[in-house]
Design a protein around this nucleic acid. Structure first.
Lengths: 164, 164
DNA sequence: TTTACAAATGTTATATATTAACGATTCGGC
DNA sequence: GCCGAATCGTTAATATATAACATTTGTAAA
């Protein structure tokens, strides 16, 4: 919980990102302790690699890195760790990119929603009770019971727009 | 533009689906004529196969069908047709399923949004100015310029819920 | 109408993404 | 220490998608 944490990942120039990583790992350990889950070495390392930056990470990038570090790693090594982290709510999958991003709990109580900058490739998780409410309203109108929401907004962040 | 067209694809029992298909193909031809695009035999057939029902269609299902019909077909055959139809706005990709659905223009002026029933696998394209407005508001707050929205809501439709 | 260029398609190969299946190991409770 | 469950190693298969280059076709200018 460092003062240098940026308000938005889109203004992340020179922020103390090591704090993001260590905070995420600390939160993961707390959550696993609370829930009796085992944050094994592989799982922890995968989470750490995903938090290496604020860009979504691809499964095969993880596979290559883990493979180099351990001398061996097959796809299931990575996908099992990803499944665990997804189930634990520690990461999210970005469907439109086939990639994974650390959960920073920025969605609050609602479903996660993402702003994805196509220029810097950073992804911000945003809360929006307004969007949640509007979608709940649409679902109710259609008699549709919502289980899961995939909300991924692609575009250009403020920082990249002002650079252009 | 047939009277038997259902209000929702979730209440599509016994509707005259051939009208859905022919309407979609007619609209495609009009749009291509207007815009100077070429709706070739392969592209037209792929669009027709996607409109075969109101469920998302996978690329390799198309590949197998086209392959049988033509005696030959490699992945690029299908993916190039899909790219064309996507660019023309005639189909949408459902990112969370890696599958494709015909555009029925049900999103009106806004970005497309989908209700996806996990039980009957039907997909409904819904308009929602309310959701569009809420997302535009969030984007403005973040200084984010929206290019594209992926909004895919998974759950259970009314018809499937009442069957259970 | 021939030529020439661009668009579309054919073809081969490969990269990326994901899961199945089964054996070996390790962890935690008894 | 023993046992069952969870985790991991390993091999293989399946699913999704793109790169690269050759060939053909459509179209419009010369």
């Amino acid at each position: 919980m460092t003062a240098s944490r940026p308000k938005s990942v889109f203004n992340a120039h020179g922020h103390d990102h090591s704090a993001c990583i260590s905070d995420a790992l600390t939160r993961a350990e707390l959550l696993c302790n609370e829930q009796g889950l085992r944050l094994t070495a592989i799982r922890r390392r995968v989470l750490e690699l995903i938090w290496d930056n604020h860009r979504p990470t691809k499964a095969y990038d993880l596979l290559h890195t883990i493979g180099q570090e351990r001398g061996n790693a097959a796809p299931p090594t990575v996908y099992r760790a990803l499944d665990f982290l997804l189930d634990a709510g520690l990461i999210h999958k970005i469907e439109s990119l086939n990639a994974f991003i650390g959960c920073d709990a920025g969605h609050g109580q609602g479903h996660p929603k993402f702003l994805i900058c196509r220029s810097c490739e950073r992804v911000a998780e945003i809360p929006s009770p307004e969007v949640d409410h509007a979608l709940a309203h649409e679902a109710k109108r259609a008699g549709f019971k919502i289980d899961h929401e995939t909300i991924e907004i692609g575009g250009t962040c403020r920082a990249c727009a002002s650079e252009a």
